[in-house]
Nucleic acid binder design. Structure first.
Lengths: 197, 197
DNA sequence: GCCTACATGTAAATAGTTACATGATTGA
DNA sequence: TCAATCATGTAACTATTTACATGTAGGC
């Protein structure tokens, strides 16, 4: 989880540990934070595995910084983690899923759509379970009931949001394929039989 | 966290591990789940520390169950954990806070109000930080922006919900004190000077 | 008779946090 | 000059999951 976040941020530009921590807090802090005690060892691990490397190039090292940049190996590792076939835990864990979403720009529309659908299904199942539980168990304490109701509504809001995102992905795919089809026809008209791109 | 949940559930009635796990999943599963690998060792710890004890009384043990009940010592431990002076992590960690709320019935209105206020302040601060960040950093990726916006709105919805709960607690306190005041006056009229309850 | 759900547990791994330790740089 | 923030790191601890291991009871 942490390594995915680090690689994703270093993909944008080289940074040192302290800067990474700040950016993680500001950017993702609304759903996830890290401590130095976990950040620095992670950087060490990533360097050891060759996913990142030191980059002092830009007259750095005046201040006692260790600036890191992502390597081609790291780019691959990042894409693997990001596109990885998703399991139950990754779907159930909101923070994990959100972190993935924070780097959605790096995935193809199909992959994004697939992940969004999986998450939507998971949340819908949760709602169904909740409803089933509620219909059996009516005598629950008021605070607990209120809490679950609030969670229930937030989950419904999550699903509506996912629906909007999914519609957007479908539109992206439709447009792209429409344009490709059109291009093909034009090419065909001009040069005869040409296989699709 | 887990121990608080176990004690809170056993306060209602004795249960065995398997049953606890099911109830935890159904009741709190929408924001928190546990595995057996963490549940059973926790039960062992709680038994060892004298917070829970085996209760085979009701012709159990036909099936291979270990039914536990909470002890007076456990009740105390539970109340300590629940009412404990809250630190930053407990405020920031939504799951932790939600778990506390699931057992709000066992706290006095003042304590509930205090916890709700602390949480409200924390969330409000988060929103302010987010706004500050947004105003500086405009060039962010679309998916990330969308994600943070959604989180932002959910946090606002959380705050509105907390406000409703706080109003309810204030009303509870007002009613109670009003009634107490009235009672005192009546007592005074009938029997002369009597100190407040 | 066999499959599903019931029921308990352990060992190893995972993914962190907390507390500590140290020192440099900058601005008021 | 002194406080705040920048900057890096380690050791010990915490809380948990995953994978494994084992066996029982009830229903079809």
């Amino acid at each position: 989880m942490l390594e995915l976040a680090i690689l994703g941020l270093l993909k944008e530009r080289p940074m040192h540990g302290y800067e990474l921590k700040k950016r993680l807090s500001y950017m993702l802090g609304h759903f996830w934070t890290v401590s130095y005690g976990s950040l620095y060892p992670a950087l060490k691990r990533l360097e050891k595995s060759g996913s990142i490397e030191r980059a002092y190039s830009i007259k750095e090292k005046t201040r006692n910084r260790n600036v890191f940049r992502i390597t081609p190996r790291g780019e691959k590792a990042f894409m693997n983690m990001l596109g990885e076939e998703i399991n139950d835990t990754a779907l159930a864990d909101t923070e994990k899923f959100d972190l993935r979403m924070a780097f959605f720009q790096y995935l193809e529309p199909e992959k994004r759509l697939h992940l969004l659908e999986m998450r939507r299904n998971y949340l819908t199942e949760q709602l169904a379970k909740f409803k089933a539980y509620r219909s059996v168990n009516k005598d629950e304490d008021l605070y607990r009931t209120g809490l679950l109701k609030h969670k229930f509504n937030q989950t419904k809001s999550d699903i509506r949001w996912l629906d909007r995102l999914m519609a957007h992905e479908r539109e992206t795919i439709r447009k792209r394929d429409g344009a490709a089809g059109k291009r093909n026809i034009e090419v065909e008209t001009a040069e005869g039989q040409v296989s699709a791109v």
